[in-house]
Amino acid sequence: MTKNAIISVKNLVKKFGNFTANDNLNFEVHEGEIFGFLGANGAGKTTAVRILSGLSAPTSGEVIVAGFNARKQPEQIKKNIGYMCQKFSLYEDLTVKENIMLYGGIYGMNKKLIRERTDSLLKRLNFEEYGDRLILDLPLGLKQKLAFSVAVLHQPKIVFLDEPTGGVDPVTRRQFWEMIYETAAGGITVFVTTHYMDEAEYCDRVSIMSEGKIVALDTPAELKKQYNVGSVEEVFIKIARP
């Protein structure tokens, strides 16, 4: 695996008034890896992800995402990332194709390219007969898979996933993770935030945040070895609460 840093965070601090949400974060995410970003409720995950995706400026520190500075070039960052969260992803009252068309348009892709990628996407998901169905009528698992495909439609350098497989059945969840592996193998970095630890086990490396700081960062196997436990969940319970 190449070790080029696609995300590089140095001394990141984010304050809201007196409250320090991110307290001197330092980490790198490598190109093409699946990076799990874990933490208890209120540990500062959301704040950090907002900064990484160009939605909010850091108070101090240097954040480089996909080659762009988060403070000075947030618009450039937004063009080079994809985003999918569990709650909002696709417009329920539009059809599958209309949704794809819309997102392609938002990222400035031309019609021909959108159509090509739509076809290959639907084919890959065995979705051809669903193209003209409303999102509303799709089962949850299909929606999630489609939402992910749409998030990487414009082939961003990084895709941010927020609790991507919450509540889906075990088979669909595995299909979903296979899609993530495939995406990562294709060179797109996958950044997953979740508080479900079994999801963390699928990642190449995970970081655990607590009270605004990163308290652990390694491969799941290494973390388990280090804390001498059987699962990332146990690691988490040991260190995520002060």
Binding site: M1, R174, W177, E178, Y181, E182, A184, A185, D198, E201, Y202, T219, P220, A221
Partner: peptide
């Protein structure tokens, strides 16, 4: 194996195998 994606694809096409599911690492 380090390259999970490749591993899964290879196992899927392996003749002697009946089910393949990714499970954590």
């Amino acid at each position: 194996a380090p390259e999970k994606h490749k591993l899964i694809n290879a196992l899927r096409s392996c003749p002697g195998i009946s089910s393949v599911y990714p499970f954590g690492d």
